[in-house]
């Protein structure tokens, strides 16, 4: 073991879990909240967020794909050879996902 514990498997696990969540759950949410509600095919007054299980589900839905984004975006930008320094990029990506997770938890607890 190195003195600084390597947390790469954690990021990879979150990437993978986020990939599954995004693959199975995101398309229908885009259909509902990107099309059906704005265009008036369905009405929604926000009552669905009363349920604790819905809050937990939405926390998973919103937070995990952010780690999927972080992992993909970090490596894609690296691979594109744009000369973006790695450390700030990693902080932006993985830090961004953590910030999004905290924001999702707070918002879902507030509503």
């Amino acid at each position: 073991m190195t003195p600084t514990k390597n947390i790469e498997p954690l990021w990879w696990g979150l990437f993978s879990a986020g990939g599954v969540v995004a693959a199975f759950l995101v398309p229908i949410h885009i259909l509902i909240f990107g099309f059906a509600i704005p265009l008036g095919w369905l009405t929604d007054t926000g009552l669905i967020y009363r349920y604790l299980l819905i809050k937990i589900y939405l926390f998973v839905l919103i937070s995990l794909p952010l780690y999927h984004w972080a992992h993909r975006f970090y490596f894609a930008v690296n691979d594109m050879r744009l000369g973006v320094p790695r450390k700030p990029l990693a902080i932006f990506c993985y830090g961004g996902a953590v910030v999004g997770t905290v924001a999702a938890a707070l918002v879902l607890l507030m509503v």
């Binding site: 995101v26 949410h29 967020y49 839905l61 794909p65 984004w69 993909r72």
Partner: peptide, 18 residues
């Protein structure tokens, strides 16, 4: 993954409006 993340953040902002 960028489009998916932006969609989810916009959706979170919508929930925040409540």
């Amino acid at each position: 993954s960028v489009f998916i993340a932006i969609f989810l953040i916009v959706y979170l902002v919508q929930i925040y409006q409540l």
